[in-house]
Design a protein around this nucleic acid. Sequence first.
DNA 1: CTGTTAGCGCTTTCAA
DNA 2: TTGAAAGCGCTAACAG
Lengths: 333, 333
Amino acid sequence: MKRITIADVAQHAKVSKSTVSQYLNKRYDYMAENTKQRIEEAIKELDYRPNIVARSLKQKSTMTVGVIVANILHSFSTQVIRAIEDFCHLQDFHLIVCNADDDPEKEKRYIEMLRAKQVDGIIIFPTGDNVELYQEIVQSNYPIMFVDRLVPEVPIPSVMLDNEKAAGLAVQHFVEKGYERIGIITNVIRNVTPRMERINGYKKVLKENGLSINEDYIRKMQVSCVQEALHDMLSLDEPIQAVLAGNDLTLMEILKYVKKHRIRVPEDLAIIGIDDVSFANFYEPALTIVEQPAFEIGKKAAELLLNKIQKKDVEEELDVYRFEPTLIVRQSS
Amino acid sequence: MKRITIADVAQHAKVSKSTVSQYLNKRYDYMAENTKQRIEEAIKELDYRPNIVARSLKQKSTMTVGVIVANILHSFSTQVIRAIEDFCHLQDFHLIVCNADDDPEKEKRYIEMLRAKQVDGIIIFPTGDNVELYQEIVQSNYPIMFVDRLVPEVPIPSVMLDNEKAAGLAVQHFVEKGYERIGIITNVIRNVTPRMERINGYKKVLKENGLSINEDYIRKMQVSCVQEALHDMLSLDEPIQAVLAGNDLTLMEILKYVKKHRIRVPEDLAIIGIDDVSFANFYEPALTIVEQPAFEIGKKAAELLLNKIQKKDVEEELDVYRFEPTLIVRQSS
DNA sequence: CTGTTAGCGCTTTCAA
DNA sequence: TTGAAAGCGCTAACAG
């Protein structure tokens, strides 16, 4: 069951390998109709399939890109991946998907493996902790994009949400609804930028509205401590009246707490979440949400990466592409 | 900025390419300590990284597997992919992920591309409509596994849920709770096996309990028509008292309807869903669910595939690996 | 219009 | 213990 190669086809069609190669690459320009047909037949009869690995070796291009996400189980990652896949598919690129689990070591190994595999470029949700490696990549002029997060030390373009605005939209809405004691809970994974930006946006809008900032109302922690934090903020002398969930996981923890303690939403506690969740519109009460355009973000990242790969060097090269969040007002706020 | 190769390293270390190759493959058995060190240094100084494509060409193994899912946005797919990735990672395999969108044409192109790319094996959520291609693959003895679905005509092992039992568990629970008019709604994509199996399980358990089967209570349709179907079943002279949602999307449609029409759950309508959903336990009421072990399914598929690839041909080769569903009783039933 | 030839970067006998 | 040489399957000048 020997794998059949271009040589077999050539022999079978009584032409040379190069002619077959021409045919395969659709360079029929000067090919005799007859030759073409013989090759076509030979291919069919032998059920020949080109070996792309060999081609890649020669051409120094694998037509594949690597994607390293923190965790594919997170729906934002999934959506971004899907968008990337769709875009790449149009240009016949494939995706190698890796989960770094927010572990810088794992991230590093994946980056190295992907480069060893000669993928043409990488899109990555960076942990932020491999600054040296990132630098190296930039210097070697290898196509790479960041998504969702920013690594200030490194000149690699990022495609991400305008996080400050996202938090700001939510807070502004709360303020307009008359809430004054507004809390924010985010879960923190290392010192990744989005969390900070969201908190900044929160503070900024409070200030703009002449409200004071109470550090007791600002909590960063792991997902497992969210309920506790919420409990604290509701037990203060001046308990919060509204809370902004920094992401979907945090939101879900808040909802669990709310259910357990029979807290009325929004009467006792108004809630807004950042990140869309599948159940937002049929939850009771329907959830007010700040949505991020995951698909556009993924698509943009893919587009920019493929441009780089294909050297369509659109000179400019912004450093950060910010996408607009959207506030979807429902019943929980 | 020329890419540096094994030849450069050899030259730099003043040894031959083959010696370097030995070194890279950790065949130090008979290598002089001194040689080893020189090579090590050369590699470091030149910042050499092996080109895996070249190696793959020679070794006829790319250490990567292809995964073709219907849609990565579906959380079951995501979980399976994650499990596959984790397992493969342990053995240094990588994943190329593709979305076939339940489109047989797309599936076909992906299968062909993946083989052309010389991936060592494929795991696929089959559309079921490329029987010829599947046959061909089997005959060429190429490592492949099906997940989630079965294609009866083709002897490719499948890893999947015991769907009949999943539906059965739910129905049995309804019956024990005293419901007699029980409906089932599934969304149908071609004539893929799981849907049928679930309906069979539903019927079987009804019969076992001496209940009659009312075809008006059995509906297969696209997601967009679920609400309408539910409406019908609730408007019958003998309206249903309980409904089984065939998957998560169907469940969500049902919940939307329920909210819109202020139907009390479970008093007016009891609900059970197949497939876990993130909000099951904090929804109001908390949702009774039949869970499928997505991770085990993914892991098993990966394990079996890698076994095949590595020719650990565990003789036996079952055709179908069925996984047990779990009923999680909460408040909606 | 088609064939010859020389690699791409690595592995792997086989000799030395 | 190390090196020379052939070859994996394909592409791309360059001849003819």
